[in-house]
Write a protein that binds this DNA or RNA. Structure first.
Lengths: 228, 228
DNA sequence: TGGGTCATGTAATAGGTTACATGATTGC
DNA sequence: GCAATCATGTAACCTATTACATGACCCA
């Protein structure tokens, strides 16, 4: 009965189903905003994914257009979950989760930092610490915005768990970063005390790395396939 | 002088440059193996990325084919870093690191776990804990394999730092997982004690989710674009 | 002589971001 | 009337994984 040509949705689609299961009558725009505000510290979606996914989900009957416009807004399409959609969501929830391929560019640069000046590693760790401090603020903000809800909400215990994992990991990384920074600074200081061969490294006064431009950021598209 | 049509390499290319900066005369195969064995807990590369990247790096003069075959193997192409390659690597190392888009499927499923039976969340957390325990073993294995090197190795302090961050975050996650599991089990037990309406949830004996098949794993390609 | 691993490579496809285009609505 | 934000959508890329093809070498 439900082995028609559908299935094999992408994670974006399941995120949409999940969002609509928590709150019906959301538009694509709402969904994106909701994701940013509630699970933005561990999940992101772009419009380029959301709108096509909505079309497809509707086509396959997992969501349905709804007319309800909670506020007076017009020209926006909201959706609700269908029974089939709820079933698909439950099915997906029960499957083992995928490990995302590990790709941590911070750790990669730290691993190879021996080729560069110690300033580089120090700057990256400072950068990481700042980002982590900001994450902690974000997480605490979300945390503060939750309790007011009705306490019988079946989602609440799980929402608290996701927040506490986020907090635990970010805190651990921040503690590591502060210790690492202290260790590297001590090492730098002692190196400055003892004699040192003049090497490639030019002791810069600023430790902050300059802005990174990589294909992205539209302009500055210097790359143009060398051969072929 | 060095503003020719090159630059804008992808992370894979920089990983290769990094690998060759630590040890020259590696083949594509070696590089992949080396990555798995030393930084596999935070970085992965596939052949489909490595071989094209090697070609391109050689074309742009950042690496050069070398003849040295450390062991007696034949029919394999090894490479060394050129001066330009080392410069490119240093330049990239100094740029701020990219945050990978946060996409943690475990947290996503946990967040929406309220739509499903409590067994689902419990199974996922057990799964996570097992993976984390395995990570810790891997990290400790790598850790044990490092000290024998010459202590003057300039990479060593950074390698130790990457390992300690990996360990800190994994341990934090594991501690969280154990507490979370205890909390959910307690909740389940107390729910079983108090009367409960018969709902959709079918109390399964097994808590382990079944194998996930999603397009990948070649066979079982049930999806076949419904329309268009 | 045959299995395992070494070794290189490519085609199909998935999955996703960015930049851009377009226009409506709200509030000042 | 104008800026900000709401709102939808698409085309051009990029990045990466998977599956497959191909064959050499090692050793028992």
């Amino acid at each position: 009965m439900y082995l028609l040509g559908m299935s094999n949705l992408n994670p974006t689609s399941y995120t949409i189903l999940g969002g609509l299961s928590v709150q019906p009558d959301l538009s694509g725009y709402d969904i994106r905003k909701g994701i940013q505000q509630s699970i933005g510290y561990f999940w992101a979606e772009s419009y380029g994914q959301i709108y096509p996914a909505l079309k497809r989900l509707a086509r396959e009957g997992l969501i349905a257009p709804s007319k309800a416009s909670p506020n007076g807004r017009k020209r926006r399409q909201t959706y609700v979950l269908t029974d089939a959609g709820r079933a698909a969501l439950r099915q997906w929830l029960a499957l083992p989760f995928h490990n995302e391929t590990p790709r941590n560019e911070f750790l990669l640069k730290l691993f190879f930092a021996g080729v560069a000046s110690p300033d580089v590693a120090i700057a990256h760790i400072q950068d990481l610490n700042e980002r982590n401090r900001r994450w902690l603020v974000t997480i605490k903000t979300i945390e503060a915005s939750i309790p007011p809800e009705q306490p019988s909400n079946p989602h609440l215990p799980y929402w608290m768990l996701t927040l506490s994992l986020g907090k635990a990991m970010t805190s651990a990384a921040l503690e590591w970063g502060e210790k690492a920074l202290a260790a590297l600074n001590a090492r730098e200081a002692s190196a400055a005390g003892s004699p040192q061969l003049p090497t490639t490294r030019t002791r810069k006064t600023s430790t902050s790395p300059r802005k990174q431009t990589r294909g992205k950021r539209g302009s500055m598209r210097s790359e143009r396939k060398v051969s072929k």
